[in-house]
Amino acid sequence: MGNPIKIIKNGIIDENPTFVQVIGMCPTLAVTSSAINGIGMGLSTAAVLICSNIFISLLRKVIPDKVRIPSFIVVIATFVTIIQFMLQAYLPALNDSLGLYIPLIVVNCIILGRAEGFASKNSPLDSAFDGIGNGLGFTIALAAIGLVREFIGSGTLFSYPVMPEAFPHTLLFVMAPGAFFTLGCMMALLNHLKNKKKSA
């Protein structure tokens, strides 16, 4: 059994799914036009990831190697559908803004990647911590990108105007190219900090 704090920290920092593993790019680029959308997408993905990691880990000795991918997909798709029903029923506002992207969680490679790479080889408890770590890492990354894009693109933070009216809205940043620019700059900055730490 691994150290839970180490597993969680590994997911958030050392192997951050967005900035280090660079997986799950589709939702990262598509839904981060505002901070709140990024957090919503991150947390729904985290919820699915934790549930699917635990179940896949529990079933890891039962599932034969040959049918493991279809089995994983069925488990993941089931949780995604359950979350979608729940959002529709109890959080319709969030469901409206994430809408199309919820079903896409099924094919988010973070979830299948962690199922294949971690949960199918580790205990349920460790897998749960891995889900929390990677889920939070993804959420933080999406929220950070969303904050930058929302601030530059609309002059707001969490939909509250923070800049004077005269602040120019760089609409490019709430559209697709802005996602690439923001992600690229953030990745460069993080790598720069990492290299500096290493050479120091």
Binding site: V62, V67, V74
Partner: peptide
């Protein structure tokens, strides 16, 4: 392997049926 996959999908389908029924009215 086929039997195990069948069981997994059957359990998943049952679970989804239950959740769909319970959230239908709220939706």
């Amino acid at each position: 392997p086929s039997a195990i996959l069948l069981i997994i999908t059957a359990v998943a389908a049952m679970l989804l049926g239950v959740v769909s029924e319970t959230t239908k009215e709220a939706i």
